[in-house]
Design a protein around this nucleic acid. Structure first.
Lengths: 204, 204
DNA sequence: ATCTATCTAGTACCTGAGTACGATACGGCG
DNA sequence: CGCCGTATCGTACTCAGGTACTAGATAGAT
């Protein structure tokens, strides 16, 4: 697998050595002391130690921009859900304990490098508690009265595709798509594809 | 690393072979056809294919119990955020695309086996949006290039109302509503009110 | 063997949505 | 003052979306 550039922003020599050790097949750079984030090639993988001095001085705007351009993992020596939320909301791709087990950290890097987000168990269940509860029952029910084919059509329609696009995607006629959608509207008690979309996405 | 027992519940031979292939150093079992979940040793790692027949027949209570006892990864051939939320809320430890790249699936298994939760990017950002909605930039950014009146019209249209309903709600003509919407579509780069709704509600 | 559900599709029709190409009015600004 | 952005509305057109009515094929169930 080709590795992206990997950098660490920290004041802590021990921590830096740690990351360099567990990412031995990466090219690891040390940030700070002149070497700035905006000098890095785009799509870099960056670990940021929250204990770094003057971190708070960096304005939010810079963070958002950097998070767009790179994959930033926040490593905190005292992880806390609220702090993690704030970082992830800012666009960070990961939030973990800076002194987690090496195997875990390596996993974090692998996952993040592959384009996914990494969120620890504690924070994760926190997220689920917040949003999942209210929506879950309703969420699995919208498709309940539908047949398998109707579900497929409904899903695609709810993404904003036209009847013709759905037809081509499923290899059937536009007319057949209309048939299925009419059945879907009837069964779900909606009038058109927009209301269908709102229902599918759990908004109404 | 010691591997937990690993089982797959699916009707699909191809899918089973796939999982067995990518977990060659695990002992992989095939569920269904008599072999039931409750016969497995505790703390097993189980992948459940949502396309499995009669899956909907299994009551919610059984799922919750199984999720407590084991680590259950839901593999959907048509992943959908709402469905994923429902499963995770039920206690599943992972939700992924059944036909994702092998490297990804292997990663999923590694992460889950190590005790963490695995949630895909799309679902993850959805979760974050739910929590950080009030502070989310995206949530208020869609309206940035619009005038005040256009914002109003767009908001109502995104709720599923017709042009006539919008007109009556705002005390203007249907024609005027169309004017505003045309401007909105142009500014936001969408083709119709459905795509507008998806953008407004932060789905696309 | 019959019945039912599902998926498929044809023709015809109506309407809302979106666009094209205008117009009028009002307020701020150089 | 003229210029420009904003809000309002008119007519007319095209077209995708949705409906009505129909019907063949297949598979499963009783």
């Amino acid at each position: 697998m080709s590795r992206p550039a990997f950098s660490v922003l920290t004041d802590d020599e021990t921590l830096f050595a740690r990351f360099r050790g567990l990412a031995s097949d990466w090219a690891v750079y040390r940030l700070g002391n002149g070497k700035a984030i905006d000098e890095l090639p785009p799509h870099s993988l960056i670990v940021v130690d929250t204990a770094t001095r003057d971190l708070a001085a960096i304005p939010e705007k810079i963070w958002r921009a950097s998070c767009q351009q790179h994959r930033i993992v926040i490593a905190s020596s005292q992880p806390e859900d609220e702090e993690g939320l704030a970082w992830l909301d800012l666009g960070a791709t990961g939030y973990c304990h800076a002194y987690a087990a090496e195997a875990t950290l390596r996993q974090v890097l692998e996952v993040v490098a592959s384009g996914e987000l990494w969120v620890g168990r504690s924070l994760m269940s926190r997220l689920l508690k917040g949003i999942g509860a209210r929506r879950s029952t309703h969420a699995r029910n919208w498709a309940a009265p539908l047949t398998e084919r109707e579900r497929e059509v409904a899903r695609i329609a709810a993404e904003g595709d036209s009847n013709l696009e759905i037809a081509q995607a499923l290899g059937i006629t536009e007319r057949t798509v209309k048939s299925h959608l009419t059945a879907v509207f009837e069964k779900l008690g909606v009038n058109d594809r927009l209301q269908l979309a709102l229902k599918v996405h759990g908004i109404h």
